[in-house]
Write a protein that binds this DNA or RNA. Structure first.
Length: 490
RNA sequence: GAGCCGUUAGCUCAGCUGGUAGAGCAUCUGACUUUUAAUCAGGUGGUCACAGGUUCGAUCCCUGUACGGCUCACCA
């Protein structure tokens, strides 16, 4: 950057001076014997200066440096924490000390020495030899306030991670969350699979896709908006329990809980219905909360959440009745339209009864669902891959679950009747033709798979980013995605 | 896409009805061999996001643009 030229220039000059001492500022390797955490662990009990000092080698980034003439203290930071080092001229030698004086905060160094405790009780490495492992020529943000500017934190996540340990912790927890879920599913004989990101026909959700083009095939391809239809093909093929952590892409707006690319766990279990999937869902998430927090009761922003199963189950119609005062069941589509419009729901006028119910839910219910809640039995019109309820074909065996007003997951008893599925596809295709940019096309190959026969199957999708937000108390999805989507800087 | 707010030194931030800028940290010089926001003394560092306008004069008022944040819309 132009503005930092002076400081960068100064550091480049130091780089040249270090080279003039015959030292390579970017060597190829170093072999630490201890991480900073290992030193704190292994030497926790030592007093002042031990009788039989043990030599350690530790490597990391210089974060602070306090020069005192002929000696100097510094803290170095590695992947696990920090350790103080104490560099004395009479210990390392006059010339190495001169070189060390050219080190800056931000430099990566390797230090060899013995561990002792300072007068003030801090565990410290008394350095016998210190080596530059990588010269930093761009200054770090200020040591006390760290890096605050949210724009720089997202654009330069590397700087954010160096300066803000709590950010690193969020992303470590994200990995732990994914690993916890993976372990639990594997333990239940689920098989992790990989399915296409580039799809000739997108489907499995209602969303606008990103479109790309394959030159050799001379064909448009879409980045997946979901992997649902591929995983169900695998159920047809005889994999009876499959899952995938799927990076999905939706060409839509961005806000605190939407990023154009996001991670969804989808899983499918043959012979299960949505009731079993509900139990699996609440167990998976409660157990994950326990692994991360040791409890199923956690705080998110201003809410105390309780993930302890069983979660509340409420049909969509009941939830609408409860929160809007409108009971859709006895009403005709026309009457429901009038009531909904009167209540302030924004409607175009051509909605079906089921679509109006879904609108009522969005308007009156969704934001009020704070504690984990299963909303079940959606209208068929908004659920093209779910099985009808045997006792009421206007509704389907489906649930979504909501936490803090956010939809976190979606599941159904999967539609496996190929004739019915074809009909639902045709309705979507008509919607697409009628201008609904989020409807999708008929997937003939998927229908062919269903025609071979798919066992009764329960399926589930969980928004991993949103789940991570909840379990790490982050307000924005950008705070749980390492590199959130941003406009170009210039 | 709309509304509101923000953008000042490398970083964190001040800046009064409009008189062309400050602090702390970082950095540089000097002193200092148990400091830890090291300390002490002295320096360097700015197209006040960008482009126009009003004004004798603009970081400040107005308009536009860029980027960001929040809210809403969109997104089952």
């Amino acid at each position: 950057m132009e503005e930092t030229k002076d400081l960068i220039q100064q550091r480049r000059e130091k780089l040249d001076e270090i080279r003039e001492f015959g030292v390579e500022p970017y060597p190829h390797k170093y072999e630490p014997t201890h991480s900073t955490a290992a030193i704190h662990r292994d030497f926790a009990d030592i007093q002042e200066t031990p009788d039989e000092p043990q030599t350690v080698r530790v490597a990391g980034r210089v974060m602070t440096k306090r020069d005192h003439g002929k000696s100097s203290f510094a803290h170095i930071q590695d992947g696990e924490g920090r350790i103080q080092i104490y560099v004395r001229r009479d210990q390392v030698g006059a010339e190495p000390y001169k070189i060390y004086r050219r080190f800056d905060s931000g430099d990566i160094v390797g230090a060899e020495g013995t561990v002792f405790r300072t007068r003030t009780g801090e565990l410290t490495v008394l350095v016998d030899a210190i080596q530059l492992l990588s010269k930093s020529i761009r200054p770090l943000p200020e040591k006390w306030h760290g890096l605050q500017d949210i724009q720089i934190r997202y654009r330069q996540r590397y700087a954010d991670l160096i300066m803000n340990p709590e950010v690193k912790d969020v992303f470590l927890k994200r990995t732990q969350i994914v690993q916890a879920i993976r372990d639990m599913l594997n333990a239940q004989n689920f098989i992790e699979v990989e399915t296409p990101v580039l799809q000739p026909i997108y489907g499995g959700a209602n969303a606008r896709p990103f479109t790309t083009y394959h030159n050799t095939l001379e064909q448009s391809l879409y980045l997946r908006i979901a992997n649902e239809l591929y995983l169900k093909r695998l159920i047809v093929g005889g994999f009876e329990r499959v899952y995938e952590f799927s990076r999905d892409f939706r060409n839509e707006g961005m806000d605190r809980d939407h990023n154009p690319e996001f991670t969804m766990l989808e899983l499918y279990q043959a012979y299960a219905d949505y009731h079993q999937i509900m139990e699996l869902t609440e167990t998976l998430i409660a157990e994950t909360a326990k692994i991360i927090h040791g409890t199923t009761k956690i705080r998110y922003q201003e809410h105390d959440l309780d993930f302890t199963p069983p979660w509340r189950r409420l049909s969509m119609v009941d939830s609408v009745r409860e929160h809007s005062g409108i009971d859709p069941v006895p009403l005709s589509a026309d009457d429901l339209y009038k009531e909904a419009a009167e209540a302030g729901v924004d409607l175009a006028g051509d909605e079906t009864k089921g679509e109006i119910i879904a609108e009522l839910f969005d308007t009156f219910v969704e934001s009020k669902l704070i504690q984990p809640t299963f909303i079940t039995d959606h209208p068929i019109e908004v659920s093209p891959f779910a099985k009808k309820k045997p006792e009421d074909p206007e509704f389907v065996e489906r649930f979504e679950f909501f936490i803090c007003g956010m939809e976190v997951g979606n599941a159904f008893s999967e539609l496996n009747d190929p004739i019915d599925q074809r009909q639902r596809f045709l309705e979507q295709a008509n919607n697409l033709k009628a201008g609904d940019s989020e409807a999708f096309m008929v997937d003939e190959d998927y229908l062919r798979a269903l025609e071979y026969g798919m066992p009764p199957t329960g399926g589930l999708g969980i928004g991993i980013d949103r789940l991570t937000m909840l379990l790490t108390n982050q307000y924005s999805i950008r705070d749980v995605i390492l590199f959130p989507q941003m406009r170009p800087e210039n």
